[in-house]
Amino acid sequence: MMTPVILITDGDLYARKAVETAANNLHASCLAKSSGNPTLRTAEDLLASLPYCEPHPVFLLFDDAGTSGPGPGETCLEIVVKSEKTEVLGALAVASTSHQNDWCRVDFSITRFQEITAYGVDKEGFAELELQRVRGDTLYNLDQLNIPVICGIGDPGKMGRWDAPERGAPVTTAALKEILHRSGYTS
Rank of each mutant, 00 (worst) to 15 (best):
A23D: 13
L129V: 04
A43K: 01
L26Y: 13
E115A: 07
V88C: 11
T21C: 02
T42H: 01
A91Q: 07
A15I: 05
L7D: 07
V121C: 13
P170E: 13
P4W: 05
T39P: 04
P72H: 08
L142A: 14
G125W: 02
A118H: 08
R112N: 12
G184I: 09
D63K: 12
E74N: 10
S34M: 08
A164F: 06
V171R: 03
V106T: 13
A118V: 12
D102K: 06
H99V: 10
L31S: 00
V81C: 14
R182D: 03
I6N: 08
E20G: 08
Y185M: 04
A93S: 11
H181E: 15
N141Q: 14
H181V: 14
K158G: 06
D163Q: 03
G160H: 11
A32T: 14
G36D: 12
F108G: 01
R16N: 15
S109D: 07
E115Q: 09
L180N: 00
E87W: 05
L89V: 10
L142K: 14
A43P: 01
Y140R: 13
S29R: 07
E115N: 04
S29T: 10
T3M: 06
I116G: 03
D63M: 03
I110G: 10
E74S: 08
Q100A: 11
G154Q: 08
R135G: 05
L131C: 08
G90T: 11
A48P: 00
V134W: 01
A175D: 02
F108L: 05
L13E: 12
P170W: 09
T86S: 00
S49M: 00
G154L: 05
V149R: 04
P165H: 11
D45K: 08
W103C: 12
E130D: 12
N101K: 13
T111L: 07
E115C: 01
A169M: 04
P4K: 02
D10N: 15
G152M: 12
K85I: 08
P38S: 05
E54C: 13
I79D: 05
R105C: 09
R133F: 08
K33Q: 07
L92I: 14
K158R: 11
T3Y: 02
K17L: 13
K17G: 07
Y140H: 15
Q114Y: 06
D12L: 06
L40Q: 13
L92F: 10
R41H: 09
F59S: 01
E44T: 02
T42E: 04
L176D: 04
F108P: 02
T172G: 04
H56G: 09
